[in-house]
Amino acid sequence: MIRLLRILGQIALGRFAQIGRASIMWGSALNSLPKTSDARLFIDQIYVIGVKSLILIVMSAFSIGAVLALQFYTQLVRFGAEEAVGVGVAMVLLRELGPVVTALLFAGRAGSAITAEIGLMNATDQLSSMEMMGVDPLKRIVAPRLWAGFFCLPMLAIIFSAVGIWSSGLVGVDWLGIESVGFWAGMLDTVELWEDIGKGIVKTLVFALIVTWIAVFQGYDSEPTSEGISSATTRTVIFSSVAVLTLDFFLTLVMYGDF
């Protein structure tokens, strides 16, 4: 019994230490960015993290928008309210699916890549040797990735929502024959800039923060073995997915409140 308690206590302390290390890493990495010489590192990371995720994001958004249009249509056409397909898709994408699905895809595509890259740098002593050369890897490696992730995810989510709405229009208006004016005017009437688009972007900012933080930290803190890197990569995807879905619930509760 006492042994069990001791083990549990040790695990808990280990977790606290991990959170502590993650916070320290976060703090000292962000301590430092505003230097123009780092701009190039940052741009390179936007390319690696953002641009390279773009195809995945656009393709997923296209099919999700199309599927949503089909599903809303089959339900709404029974009430003769098929024009509401536009509003429905726009609301769902802007408020929920855009931020959440983008964050999940981002965790799988860019997050795991960040973890693996930093993990491997750690395992092959590249981080240590950088430290020994008097270059702080937190500033050189970690900070640009954190910032790039923080900027890229919201941008990708905006593109995701736009592409999704556009493809739902393609399916709804051009294929299923919903009246175009009604389809778009419905959105215009209902969707609001801050309430729907703005708060959606706020959500993605929170997700961006948490997903890149998890990805970078898991890489930085991984065991320097091939097994360690693979489990760190897995953890990145799992932790970020769970964090995104859980946070989404609370963010929705807080932002659209009144329940």
Binding site: L94, S161, V163, I165, L188, L193, I197
Partner: peptide, 10 residues
């Protein structure tokens, strides 16, 4: 994309 969302959608 943001402009599209702002003008065409909202």
């Amino acid at each position: 994309a943001l402009a599209f969302l702002a003008v065409r959608v909202s």
